[in-house]
Simulated assay, not measured.
Amino acid sequence: MSRNVILTCALTGAGDTTGKSEHVPVTPEEIASDAIAAARAGASVVHIHVRDPQTRQGSREVALYREVARIIGESDVDPVINMTAGMGGDLMVDPSAPAERLGRIEGTDLVSGIERLAHVEELRPEICTIDCGSLNFGEGSMVYVSTPDMLREGAARIRELGVKPEMEIFDTGNLWFANQLVAEGLIDPPPLYQLCMGIPYGAPADPGLLQAMVHLLPGGAQWASFAIGRNQLPWVAQSVLLGGHVRVGLEDNLYLRKGVKATNAQLVTAAADIIDRLGHAVATPDQAREILQLGGRR
């Protein structure tokens, strides 16, 4: 049976990717321009991180989010705006450092769950993310910190703001806790889950594991999934076939095919083609709002 599939474009992320592809947007103008191009290519939702224009690294600066939102808001497209609220959880741990220096190693950006919402407080996007657990993030000594107390406090505040939380699930324990947030009434229906696959060292990009995680979702949930790198576009089909929505974009993958660097709009076009070939339709932004029970542009 044909259905409308929400297609999210994750525009830039916070990873160290700007030196790997000239297409990764950095400035607010570049990020907004990519959001507009992605929406014109068919994206239902644009997922927004911002970067410091000087360092080109991920940033929590509210003014940068404000400028991206302003430019998109003044354009001729109206995608659902989904802003990350995951920045501010990075803890660098040097096992050789004196105990008094732990938590103050270069690269640490660790603030409270509420402080991670500063831009959400001001801009009230339709959706913001909430990362539902801590994770050994890649090689080295970085831990992403998102504790149960932080998550409960953050979920309650997001609910008060009238913003839809997209619960980011990096492993099965994250899913267990996200279901607990739903059971405690901290997440309004329908709950929205993003199953994030293939990110070291969380859930591997295994179709059987995705199916098992989908089976653990509560009734009435809306969900999407994505996988990083070369698995990104094949994962569009995996997600659609299991009844989910999809995400692509340069946050998670830099290539359209082997050796061919992609733009965000090209990845959206490719994903839309996969959805169409599977007999479904890409949801318009307003159809996405209806599916997720959002209030529309603010």
Rank of each mutant, 00 (worst) to 15 (best):
A237C: 12
Q194P: 00
V214I: 14
N231M: 15
H215I: 03
S225F: 02
N174G: 15
V182A: 04
Q180H: 08
F177N: 01
S225M: 10
A224S: 15
L175A: 04
Y201T: 14
G173V: 09
V248F: 01
L216S: 09
L181T: 09
P234H: 06
W235P: 08
P218I: 14
G198I: 08
S239P: 09
E184A: 13
G219V: 08
A203N: 04
L175S: 07
Y193K: 08
G244H: 01
Q238E: 14
R230T: 15
R247I: 10
Q238F: 01
L209C: 05
G243C: 13
V240Q: 06
A205H: 04
P190E: 04
G243Q: 14
G185V: 06
L181A: 13
G249Q: 04
P200N: 10
A221K: 03
C196Y: 11
G202R: 01
Q194C: 09
A212R: 14
S225E: 08
W176S: 11
H215A: 15
G208I: 13
H215D: 15
A203P: 05
R247K: 12
A221Q: 02
S239Y: 06
Q180S: 14
L250I: 12
S225C: 15
L241E: 15
E184C: 08
P234L: 08
G202A: 07
N179E: 11
A237F: 01
V236A: 13
Q180C: 09
L186T: 10
G244R: 02
L209Y: 11
Q211P: 00
G173I: 06
M197D: 04
